[in-house]
Design a protein around this nucleic acid. Structure first.
Lengths: 211, 211
DNA sequence: GTCTATAGTACGATAGAC
DNA sequence: GTCTATCGTACTATAGAC
């Protein structure tokens, strides 16, 4: 009766090296994503919080999944809440950038199609952040409420701008929320419950539903 | 740096009566919703968990919001997880019933319109459960995963059945997920970010988006 | 800048009076 | 069946070695 299912392999699986197997552990030459203590912690945090939720994920869990000591988490982020807020803010930036690039120069139906495709692509490539976003976006009264409001306004606002420009008779904000919701819920249903299907089918279904 | 902040007035504000100010505390004559220890606990739990999340809500918080002692929570539900699973299961039952009644005898576009209206009405009347559902529905690997899968399948399946019957060329499950997502996200955006607007406008916007 | 060790607290759950 | 009191644990955060 236990989950397993999705859980697509831990980000790092705890190398758990001692403090000084290498004397120069962070030479900072060329560095890929996920390298560097800070990035490792962020990656581990988003993966664990997506599965279990913020409250059910301890800093111990995050630290050992990232292969660092707990003290390093607090040194780099100050508190568990601040770590989570960093996860949100960085994820929002990436999501917003991708959506803005997708609509750039497009209008009306073509803009919606591009936006839905970009959103589904991001959900496929970063499902953990998508889950965290959905779980937190309607929750009021937490430390990171302001960051959440930004996600909501940016993500839905991108759809709303297209609606306002092309279909001025519609309510842009609510229609934008509906379109965003259609793409996100279909996208996560796809990844969580039937991940083998190709992206094109999902995009087609969303566009069938929202046109 | 501690939370506090919002915490918008407890549902019951802890009457905190001693054990026997009344010698016959539960005569079980006529009883409205929310009366009875079990129902008070469930109501308090869904309200608090919707705002703060499962992990950030303690059994102490739930007990005092419900005006009962912590021991009563464990006597009635056995564990914090089991309490939450009860919240989910009972909410699912009510949601499913409402949606099934809404489509009964209808087909195609009329069925979709009725379904969206029923869903928005339920979200307005029980926003706490809607928030909990959205927060948990894509999370894998928790105690109540099976209950979550049931919510997903029932709620989306109701839309999917309409799609399968009326538009057999479409992918019923994904299209149903998109429609469900459109209604839920627009509905919660409405209640959380612009609650003054009338339901009709929200329904119209959702139907604009999904037609 | 990362580690280990620990302080201090809050939590889930249980036992027993009433 | 609900209460109060308490047990044991696990957690966030900090201090200090390296």
């Amino acid at each position: 009766m236990d989950p397993l299912v999705t859980a697509p392999a831990d980000p790092v699986a705890a190398p758990a090296v001692g403090p000084s197997t290498d004397t120069a552990p962070r030479r900072a030459g060329r560095r890929e994503r996920g390298t560097g203590v800070r990035e490792q912690i962020l990656d581990a945090a988003v993966a664990l919080i997506a599965e279990r939720g913020f409250g059910a994920t301890s800093v111990d869990d995050i630290a050992s999944a990232a292969g660092v000591a707990k003290g390093s988490v607090f040194y780099n982020f100050g508190s568990k809440s601040a770590l989570f807020e960093t996860v949100l803010v960085e994820g929002i930036e990436r999501l917003t950038t991708a959506m803005r690039e997708a609509v750039d120069g497009l209008h009306g139906r073509a803009a919606v199609e591009s936006l839905v495709g970009a959103l589904l692509t991001r959900i496929r490539e970063h499902p953990d952040f998508a889950k965290v976003l959905v779980a937190e976006v309607f929750r009021t009264g937490r430390d990171w409420q302001e960051s959440i409001r930004v996600v909501h306004d940016e993500a839905i606002g991108t759809f709303a701008a297209v609606v306002a420009e092309e279909w001025p008779e519609r309510d842009a904000t609510l229609t934008g929320a509906a379109m965003f919701g259609a793409a996100v819920v279909a996208g996560l249903s796809w990844l969580v419950f039937q991940p083998q299907r190709p992206l094109d089918e999902v995009r087609a279904a969303v566009l069938d539903a929202v046109h």
